[in-house]
Computed example of a mutant assay.
Amino acid sequence: MTLMTIFLFIPASFALNMAPGPNNLLSMANAKRYGIKAACCAGIGRLVAFVGMITLAATGLATVLYTSEKLFFAIKVAGGLYLLWLAYQLWTEDPNEGGNEALGGKSLFQLTRQEFFLAAGNPKAILIFTAFFPQFVDPAGSVGFQFLVLGALFLMLEWISIAAYAFFGKALRHWFSQPPMRRLFNQICSGLLGSAGIGLLLARRE
């Protein structure tokens, strides 16, 4: 793996990191309600899930897991239902209780666990590491070391993405300071999460 390969990997990876997926949407919603620090700390759960996926991809086990129809179906259903549950929670949340940086009814551990399960429950996410990463790996070199380097870069860029969406969510908090507008924001996020959940349930292996 050359330096040029890394220079090509970074922008391509960052585009994936910044894509408005369910986890980034959750970071934005968490920052709006609990603050930037809580949202960024909760993002550690997502990084832990990705570390597991990168490890599986580096050992070749990810391909075996992804090609298992039963396992794919189980993860897909669990992830889709979890997304729908998060969407329901946002939709029914009392808008008068927002706007407080205190963690309210959820602990930091609960927010971190949400991020972890949301990332781990998406079988499509493993394609990033089984199909995208190998494009930048030189088979003639140490595959494990190259996955380590690419994985570390990916996680650093993912952390930047978490912070960026958290700051964006914090900004939206001021725009949606009134309960009616806060309810609208929650319903928009709920609709997007619900759509992602339905899309995941309908997804098929490619």
Rank of each mutant, 00 (worst) to 15 (best):
L111Y: 04
K70P: 00
M1S: 03
A58L: 07
G104P: 05
P180W: 06
F129H: 09
A120E: 08
Q146Y: 09
L3M: 15
L65D: 00
D94G: 08
V51W: 03
L153C: 14
E206K: 11
A131F: 14
L25G: 02
F50M: 14
G151Y: 11
I188D: 07
P139Q: 03
N100A: 13
L47T: 10
F73M: 13
G45M: 01
M181T: 15
A38Y: 03
L184N: 01
G98A: 06
H174I: 08
L148T: 14
F176E: 04
T67D: 15
F117A: 05
R205I: 15
I162H: 06
M4Y: 10
I44F: 06
T2R: 10
A29H: 12
K70C: 02
A62L: 01
A203N: 02
A152T: 10
A102G: 11
R205V: 10
V137F: 10
C40P: 03
H174D: 15
S177P: 05
P179G: 09
T112I: 02
P134K: 02
G199R: 06
V143F: 03
P95L: 00
I54V: 09
G52R: 01
Q89P: 10
V64S: 13
I188G: 08
N100T: 14
V64L: 14
I75K: 04
M53Y: 01
L153W: 06
N96M: 14
G45N: 01
F136T: 09
S195K: 13
F167L: 13
R204T: 14
N96P: 05
S195T: 13
G105H: 10
A29Y: 13
A57I: 02
N17T: 04
L26A: 05
G169H: 10
A120I: 07
A163D: 02
G105K: 13
L184Y: 10
L111M: 13
F14Q: 02
L111F: 07
S190Y: 06
R182E: 14
D138Y: 05
R113A: 12
S68N: 15
L200H: 07
